[in-house]
């Protein structure tokens, strides 16, 4: 009898899971496998039927593609700049918000707001701030007596300019850091105070160690998200000026959906996946040395 009930329960569980397993297979895992498979085929314009060509797409990507190396460089530079910038900015703001101050909830909402806004409007709004002749930032520069800058229309400035937007968008990190800070046990701070630690020492030796799991989580998520940067390239720069904002995701979009080379685009996707995987593995491996979990014995 209990066996029969168990089986009935299991059936109920599988029924509950049907929709999301369909989703998991068709939205996530099947496409993921297909992207690897597709990367070995020539398919798209000039080749209406998929034709197996082994590693040719990869050979072409690494040897003759005029954009690939540039796109790799700008993607990594963008991601590193944005991740470092937004980690520092958001931890700093979160620490300030972690004091007893009036209207804290309101301020938190203000810093969080950019993150929820639709990115298209955000990038268009910023493109107006960055505008080369009449933009607000150029007005500020003129007040300081500096020359006008072209920001996103300047090859040397486009990545830092977009990174600044990325930092501005990181309100989610602030909220997560703040929640983490509120979980740092007060007793640690009190003990450190009794031992005569000043506020910097307490930050360095109490706050930071207690926060390492959250710093790690934010670092990982920020890295994965920023490596996938594509909207500003699609919306504002079309990969330019030159190749300076031709992010790797944009290269993939371009190969697959503009030039209609689905196989080749898949090989770009695969390389992109491997790069993200490498970064993730490195982060996880180094995390053993600096992330402290409570009750870890460390």
């Amino acid at each position: 009898m209990p066996n029969k009930r168990k089986r009935k329960e299991a059936t109920a569980a599988y029924l509950c899971l049907i929709p999301s397993i369909i989703g998991l297979i068709f939205i996530t895992y099947l496409p993921l496998l297909s992207v690897f498979a597709l990367s070995f085929f020539n398919w798209g314009s000039g080749a209406p039927d998929p034709k197996f060509i082994g590693l040719d797409n990869y050979v072409r990507l690494f040897t003759t593609d005029p954009y690939f190396l540039d796109s790799l460089r700008v993607t990594v530079v963008f991601a590193v700049l944005t991740v470092i910038g937004s980690m520092i900015y958001s931890l700093f703001i979160a620490m300030l918000l972690n004091r007893k101050i009036p209207a804290r909830g309101f301020l938190r909402a203000v810093f969080y707001l950019p993150y929820v806004l639709p990115s298209m409007a955000v990038y268009i709004g910023w493109s107006w701030l960055y505008e080369a002749n009449f933009g607000l930032f150029n007005y500020f520069l003129s007040l300081l007596g500096a020359e006008k800058m072209k920001f996103i229309a300047d090859g040397r400035l486009v990545v830092p300019s977009l990174a600044l937007i990325g930092v501005w968008l990181s309100g989610n990190l602030i909220v997560i850091f703040l929640a983490g800070l509120q979980n740092v046990p007060r007793v640690y701070h009190e003990a450190a105070l009794i031992d005569g630690a000043n506020s910097f020492q307490r930050f360095r030796h109490v706050t930071i160690p207690c926060m390492t799991p959250i710093i790690f989580y934010n670092l990982l998520m920020a890295l994965i998200n920023n490596m996938q940067i594509v909207t500003p390239a699609l919306a504002l720069t079309n990969g330019g000026p030159g190749n300076e904002s031709r992010f790797i995701t944009y290269l993939m979009y371009q190969s697959a959906f503009i030039n209609n080379h689905l196989g080749y685009g898949s090989s770009v996707s695969t390389v992109f996946f491997v790069i993200i995987a490498i970064f993730t593995v490195i982060l996880f491996l180094t995390s053993r040395n600096w992330v402290f979990y409570e009750g870890d014995g460390k």
Binding site: P31, S34, V35, I224, Q228, M252, Y253, G265, S269, F272
Partner: peptide, 11 residues
């Protein structure tokens, strides 16, 4: 953790 951009083509 899967990057959504990755699977755009098969989708």
């Amino acid at each position: 953790m899967m990057p959504t951009m990755m699977v755009m083509i098969p989708t």
